[in-house]
Each structure stands twice: as structure tokens, then as C-alpha cells.
Simulated assay, not measured.
Amino acid sequence: MLKQTIAGQLDLLRYLERGAVHLAAGMSIPEQTACEQEADEQWRTGSGVVYTFDFDGWSLNLHFDLEKNFLHDTIDFFGHCDLPGFADIAGPARAACAIEGATGFDLGDEQVVLLPSSVTLHFRKEEGDVQVLTKIAGALLSYGALADYYRSMLRR
């Protein structure tokens, strides 16, 4: 049920505005027990557990802490996908135009677009220097903390 709800209701433009998959899909905060039952894979990290749900062209990762509290989510892209809003944000310039107040960071091999919702979009260069959307990371830190982090990476 959780996997079907995510696939059927997720709109990427709402995700970029709201900061989390569950908010964009009109769901309640994900619970670890539901993820344990439906995830395609799971793995433990030093700070908790990550549950992965695989879809055609993308996968969703839900991160939980050691106390089973939801922390944040990420989406990985493996080429084109049919999610509503994907075509609107498929390149860094499009993503920056799609949401007012976006800030871009050129990290050399990666372009990151930070949105006011604290969501980050990650683009990598592929063949012919084409920037390809590879990841969206839901809000984990405040906008200011993320902006400071990416600015510090530029100084390296």
C-alpha cells in the first residue's frame, strides 16, 4: 500500500516546494514498520536504517534514526522517469526556473540547486557535458545551514 501510494501520488514540483516525499504525496509521516514490510531493500547505517523502494527509472530512500523516527528522504534517478514534474526540472537551468529563490552551486563534477524548502537537486555531467538529474534530497537541514555547507565546498 505504501509503495503504491508513493508511485500514484508523488508530484516532483510539490516535493520541491514542500521538502519531503510524504508531504508531496499527501501522506502522513512514514513509519518504519510500514517500510520494513514493503521496501525492496534496506540497510543499516551508523545513524539508523534506510529503506529503498524501486520504481521504473527512479528509487526512493526513506531514512530513519536508531529510535525509528523518520529523518528525511532522497530520490535517485537512473534515466528518464514518468513522475509528474520530472520534465520541468530535468536540467539545472530548468530546476532553477521552476522554483523561485533557487540558488545554484557549481561543484565541478556536480551542480547542486538549493531550493527555499531546503530540498537539493543534484546534477552530474554525462556524455557531451549534458547535466543529468541524478538525485533529489529532501530537507535535512535548514536552508541557511545547507547554503553554508555548499559555499564551504566551493572554497576547497
Results as ranks from 00 to 15, higher is better:
Gln4His: 08
Gln4Arg: 07
Ile6Trp: 06
Gly8Met: 08
Gln9Phe: 13
Gln9Trp: 11
Asp11Gln: 12
Asp11Trp: 06
Leu12Asn: 02
Arg14Leu: 14
Arg14Phe: 12
Leu16Asn: 08
Glu17Gly: 01
Gly19Pro: 02
Gly19Asn: 11
Ala20Asn: 11
Ala25Arg: 04
Ser28Tyr: 11
Ile29Lys: 14
Thr33Asn: 06
Thr33Ile: 14
Ala34Tyr: 05
Cys35Met: 13
Glu36His: 03
Glu38Ser: 14
Glu38Val: 14
Gln42Asn: 08
Thr45Gly: 10
Thr45His: 04
Ser47Ile: 12
Gly48His: 10
Val50Gln: 04
Val50Glu: 08
Tyr51Ala: 04
Thr52Phe: 06
Phe53Thr: 11
Asp54Ser: 12
Phe55Pro: 05
Phe55Ser: 02
Asp56Gln: 09
Gly57Asp: 10
Leu60Arg: 00
His63Phe: 15
Phe64Gln: 06
Asn69Arg: 15
Asn69Gly: 14
Leu71Cys: 12
Asp73Lys: 05
Phe77Asp: 13
Phe77Gln: 09
Phe78Ser: 13
Gly79His: 06
His80Phe: 10
Cys81Asp: 01
Asp82Leu: 09
Asp82Arg: 08
Leu83Val: 05
Pro84Ser: 02
Phe86Leu: 00
Ala87Leu: 09
Ala87Trp: 03
Ala87Ser: 13
Ala98Phe: 06
Ile99Phe: 05
Glu100Lys: 02
Ala102Trp: 09
Gly104Val: 10
Phe105Val: 03
Leu107Ser: 10
Gln111Cys: 10
Val113Leu: 12
Leu115Thr: 01
Ser118Ile: 07
Thr120Gln: 07
Arg124Glu: 14
Arg124Phe: 11
Glu126Val: 13
Asp129Lys: 05
Val130Pro: 00
Val132Met: 07
Val132Glu: 08
Thr134Val: 14
Thr134Arg: 13
Lys135Phe: 00
Lys135Asn: 05
Leu140Gln: 01
Leu141Phe: 02
Ser142Phe: 03
Leu146Gln: 09
Tyr149Thr: 00
Tyr150Ala: 00
Tyr150Trp: 03
Ser152Tyr: 00
Leu154Pro: 10
Arg156Met: 02
Arg156Ser: 04
Arg156Asp: 01
